[in-house]
Nucleic acid binder design. Structure first.
Lengths: 340, 340
DNA sequence: CGTCATTTTCAAAGCGCTTTGGAAAGCGAT
DNA sequence: ATCGCTTTCCAAAGCGCTTTGAAAATGACG
């Protein structure tokens, strides 16, 4: 069923039917009711490509994912982020699509998406420090919002980010207050912007407490479970081991806990652990009492806000870039205690 | 830049330019080269909506996700599955899109997607037992492939699945061989088809070994970490505790391990654990030596195969449904040992 | 009852592409 | 020079929708 047939069926012109269905005022309410009834009856829904061709809008949001890196999509937060974002988009009749693209073809992919008209805007996830994609998107003029920020990019752009510096700063301060002086950092890959900021928060807080950072108590890697296990074990086995760990992700923290237990130590008594917790739906941090003391920030909330911000940008691209800094909460769990 | 301008630029008709770019034979190779050069120079890429309108193809694959359930998307395997599938699709110039939809509107969403022409086919993930969506899609005539199967659906349909029954059957047999007689099952939600099959494999193998299943040694739930912890702890604390656990997911297995350690027991010595492992990229099962003995099956591989199968169905919808049963391998890790 | 303003509807153009049905050009054979 | 065949190109229709500009219907009013 298409517009033409439907309008013939109704004995009306395509114009009127189209207007009736799209809520234009210049159509009699009675006619509108008739049209809507018929549309339902014949199960009519307008062809999205034709509609897009006529309006110049695709009602689709793009998500370009660099293939080379594992930092996205095959990344635990991806599902939750996308779920929330696509739900928020759907509320405004936007869809969401992905393209997994070779690292060196990313610019081409964005360009194509724009001139193609396949999308009205894009979400940029997991920005690195000085991320080139941001500059490129600025020159392109395709609406976008960044989930995260990119240190070193001076031109304005829209972003939604967690206050990673502050979160890890507070976590470090908290450990210091508990009497810890040897605090290790198991960070994510530090070319990623969020990891850089966390490191900064950690270092600044250490400095403020008059403690100096030890290179052998800092690591940076993909946030896997074995990474946490290996690093924690190594550091704990060395002389002057850390009495506390600041860990970049819940999954890595699970590895740290395994290492602690493996060495016959007790987490929260012998060794304290604070992790960042993205509040993933399938990977809870315990139930009523959190297992880990954590800097928590919902990635679903971020997804929602990103989606809303992007729609705003699309509907009015002339507005100045919007920025939104979310604070992580520091939730107390069983993994921290006074320094032994 | 659009076709019209490009053809004017070249002094050729739109027909010729279009044919040149789409590899049709009725155009001189010299002209084709000229056209291609110009297309590159002017950075021309055809408007996908217009192309779709003209061809009737959208070059897009849909993925409808029921909002009510947490079984998908916000599900740890989602990212890996989608990454692999969308990569395979991209190789054939297909994109992939999502729609998160209220549970009761799923049929409507599929219908709309089809009559809309927004997608050429859909992927159906996480089928339940007797999943109604399959029947509906059959009546609709929209090409699709199921990731998983649905017991109780008799009509033919295309699917790609892991041999869950066999995997859990083998795992159970293996535990029996090790001398275990009290083997607990921490299953996923049993309205999900994969969980039902795993249960069947478990029960059949127990029966074959002359062992009877104990209701208090079987649980079924969302596969979270706390679920594994709570259930394992409870079962281990009861009289005649299990000496082995068969667990539905790596994340849940982490909870089981935590419970075992929490009770001062040693995994692999006092209590054996076998888990299913989807081989997720961000959640490795140890490094060289797996932590857990596991039934392993790559969800990325499944994603690839699903994508290929779907493209086949779209290009030739008359072919009979294709089915593909992947065998899980049983990999030996440190979590199993002879019954104490 | 005629006039004018307002409401309601319509015909047709246009969005950017593919594709059909021809026409023109090229070329070897007669 | 002509014919027949292939190669190369083109004009125009059509995909299903929105939207402009205009016409028809309706209503208010003197």
């Amino acid at each position: 069923m298409n517009l033409k047939k439907l309008s013939e069926e109704l004995g009306l012109s395509q114009t009127t039917v189209s207007r009736a269905l799209n809520g234009y005022p210049e159509v009699n309410e009675k006619t509108r009711a008739r049209v809507e009834a018929a549309a339902r009856q014949f199960n009519y829904s307008p062809n999205s490509r034709a509609k897009g061709l006529a309006t110049g809008r695709s009602m689709m949001i793009g998500h370009v994912i660099p293939r080379s890196s594992q930092h996205e999509m095959v990344n635990p937060i991806f599902g939750d982020f996308v779920a929330a974002a696509s739900e928020a988009l759907a509320a405004h009749d936007y869809g969401m699509m992905f393209a997994r693209v070779d690292n060196q073809r990313i610019d081409a992919a964005y360009t194509a998406m724009q001139s193609n008209g396949t999308v009205d805007g894009v979400i940029l996830q997991g920005p690195a420090v000085e991320d080139e994609r941001i500059r490129f998107l600025n020159t392109l003029g395709l609406p976008y919002v960044v989930h995260g920020r990119s240190s070193g990019v001076t031109e304005p752009y829209s972003w939604v980010d967690v206050n990673n510096t502050r979160a890890f700063g507070r976590a470090t301060e908290f450990l210091v207050q508990l009497g810890h002086t040897r605090i290790a950092l198991l960070n994510g890959v530090e070319k990623m912007d969020f990891a850089t900021r966390r490191r900064k928060g950690y270092l600044t807080a250490l400095g403020a407490a008059g403690l100096s950072a030890r290179p052998d108590h800092m690591a940076s890697s993909e946030m896997t479970e074995p990474y946490g296990f290996r690093q924690a074990k190594e550091m704990l086995a060395a002389p002057n081991p850390p009495t506390a760990f600041l860990v970049a992700s819940l999954i890595t923290a699970l590895g740290v806990r395994r290492a602690i237990q493996d060495m016959g130590l007790v987490m929260g008594r012998d060794v304290s652990v604070i992790t960042h917790d993205d509040d993933l739906s399938y990977l809870g941090n315990g139930e009523d009492v959190p297992i880990f003391t954590a800097t928590r920030s919902s990635v679903r909330l971020a997804g929602e806000i990103v989606a809303e911000a992007l729609i705003d940008r699309i509907t009015d691209p002339t507005t100045p870039p919007t920025n939104r800094l979310l604070e992580a909460e520091l939730v107390l769990g069983g993994s921290t205690g006074p320094a032994p």
